[in-house]
Simulated assay, not measured.
Amino acid sequence: MSSQCLARPGSIAALLQRAAAADESAFMDFYDRTAARVFRVARCVTGDDTTACDVVCTVYAGVWRDCLAGVHEARQPEAWLLARAYREATRVTRARRTGQ
């Protein structure tokens, strides 16, 4: 979705909008407010703390890249983020099972 949607100041969506303007402190706030939930999703899917941490790193690196490219979900950012974490954790788990 476009970052043109107006977001409530201080909301997760507003932090993503600021991150899209290369505001690193906004991205750090976004991370601080959401990382525990992303880790829980990743841990639930992977069953392993170390792998879950790797998933968290991959997810946030991708989010940062997407923000700078102007690609992020402005209306439901938490759902977008958790779905992203779930997909990455599932991908990693499947790859591990198939030995890739």
Rank of each mutant, 00 (worst) to 15 (best):
A36Q: 13
M1L: 07
Y86T: 03
E78Y: 00
R75Y: 01
L15T: 02
L68H: 09
V56E: 03
W80N: 08
R8N: 08
T34D: 14
T34E: 11
E24K: 13
G70Y: 14
M1Y: 06
G99H: 13
R33D: 09
D54P: 07
V55F: 07
L6C: 11
R75I: 08
A61D: 09
R33V: 04
S3G: 12
W80A: 08
T46F: 07
T58Y: 11
R91T: 12
V92N: 06
P9H: 05
I12N: 08
Q17M: 11
A74Q: 09
Y60H: 01
C67M: 07
R33F: 10
A13P: 05
G10S: 11
A61V: 09
M28C: 07
R96H: 10
D29R: 14
A20M: 03
G70L: 15
M28D: 06
F27P: 00
V59Y: 01
Q17D: 01
A19Y: 02
L16F: 03
R40D: 15
H72T: 01
V55D: 05
F27H: 07
V55L: 08
T93I: 00
G10M: 09
V92I: 14
S25G: 03
V41T: 14
F30T: 01
L16Q: 01
A95H: 03
G70H: 12
D48Y: 09
A7R: 00
Y86D: 12
T93W: 03
D29Q: 15
A21F: 04
A21N: 10
A20L: 01
L68T: 11
A89H: 08
R91E: 12
D32V: 14
S3F: 04
V55N: 09
T34V: 11
H72V: 05
R75N: 05
R33H: 13
A7D: 00
C57T: 11
M28V: 05
R75D: 06
S3W: 05
W80K: 06
